[in-house]
Design a protein around this nucleic acid. Structure first.
Lengths: 242, 242
DNA sequence: TCCCTATCTTTACATCGTAAAGATCGAATA
DNA sequence: TATTCGATCTTTACGATGTAAAGATAGGGA
């Protein structure tokens, strides 16, 4: 027996002061500390703190480093603390993905609002889509790595659904049609699938480095954003779009 | 000390006969067995056997179940045996992905050869692409799950490169242009990126269940394949393809 | 004032990837 | 033909992870 695994876990023993986070206001205890440098047994806002810690870990160490225990370490709590708030790893990842989808939707909405000309309006959403993924590759990776997610969680389901609704709406406005929630014609479905597949596929291939070969063969200094624009606006010279 | 982890590992101790595989010819010892039911210490073709075992595990237990130890168990060897042939998990997954790319390329090539009319020729490749992914979702998942792969391995690099070359060639034939290996115009790059992004994005979204919402709203009985066709052939009524 | 319950920590365990050392056997060499 | 060598496979070991269960703590209502 014996052989516990407390090794490697800081596991502050009610004396070691918890690592103070950068902003010093990011984890406010519910009441003023009753002693000098101690850390309260109850965190007060651990759920949010864990989500923020997870985001930091993800950006710093990538998807491979995003473990339950690493997040708990980053937040300065014991490795079992997240369980009570998220159930298991899938729970944490799902809630984090929901946060990502909300950021993602906000970025696209603000970008669309800033557009004025028709061309800008057409390109604002796809460009914001790719830009978010490039700025937050870890987040985007989680959001579309379904095997680790639980879409039955309301927060994730809602946030992802909002993303889809925004897209469908945009397509509807482009085609100057009313897209009703419950039924679609084949052509409407095709238009939505085409737009989403194109932008999502482009993003995935770009993040995976699969477009590097193409970009290198293009005229000097052509960026991914420029290629995206060309892909979306270049005239289609063949009989079929593919 | 003590507390070894031999628990859970069958680890046939030179007496337990190795689980005979289904075909009985799938693991031929290099020479006829010198005794009755013993299993030779040296497998003889373990590398191939491990790859086949990995494919079985992947189809049976999905990506989450595809571990080094599970593959070794499936092949009936000790859990450390794969190390010598693949180095580490990344090595095994990379070689497996290479197998997948070769299957994938073969499927597309044979499908293209069977096409006769121009419409068939245009759709054969995308349809074969999606069909392979639907038939082998685990394999496709590995092939495009870059974070776990090592593209510097020649076999993987070659197989994946062949996939890309086939696509670029097909686009070139569609546009009736010669696509030279070293340079591309922006429009050529855009055409390739569009085709690849569209098909890859569609496949990814489909496998992740993201197209379910669309398919359910389409006329009764519309399949994913029909939606793909419509996406690729429907006239584009808006000013931009998106 | 006292207890109840949510929150957090400790402890424990099966599993995984990987490293290192020992066992086995085919084949080259003398 | 006998011996040695190197490739292949097994054993043993270790740190890390996810998860379950039991104990500690404290805030808030009875």
């Amino acid at each position: 027996m014996a052989k516990t695994d407390t090794k490697g876990e800081p596991a502050r023993s009610s004396r070691a002061p918890r690592k103070t986070t950068s902003t010093a206001a990011s984890r406010p205890p519910r009441r003023a500390p009753s002693a000098k440098t101690e850390t309260p047994y109850h965190h007060g806002a651990l759920r949010e703190a864990l989500l923020q810690a997870a985001e930091r870990v993800l950006e710093r160490d990538g998807l491979a480093g995003l473990t339950l225990r690493a997040v708990a370490r980053e937040a300065g709590v014991s490795h079992a603390a997240p369980t009570h708030h998220f159930g298991d790893l899938t729970g944490l990842l799902s809630e984090l993905a929901a946060v990502g989808f909300r950021q993602f939707n906000a970025a696209m909405a603000s970008s669309c609002n800033a557009a004025t000309t028709p061309l800008e309006r057409a390109l604002a959403r796809p460009k914001a889509y790719v830009a978010y993924a490039q700025a937050h590759p870890g987040m985007y990776g989680i959001m579309f790595r379904t095997e680790r997610l639980d879409y039955s969680r309301p927060s994730l389901h809602e946030a992802a659904e909002a993303s889809f609704a925004g897209l469908a709406n945009a397509i509807g406005m482009m085609r100057q049609e009313q897209i009703s929630g419950d039924a679609l014609t084949l052509n409407q479905g095709a238009a939505i699938a085409r737009a989403w597949s194109m932008v999502h596929g482009f993003t995935t291939l770009l993040l995976d480095g699969r477009l590097k070969d193409i970009l290198e063969r293009l005229p000097e200094g052509t960026t991914a954003e420029r290629l995206l624009e060309a892909m979306l606006t270049a005239p289609i010279t063949t009989k079929f779009p593919v």
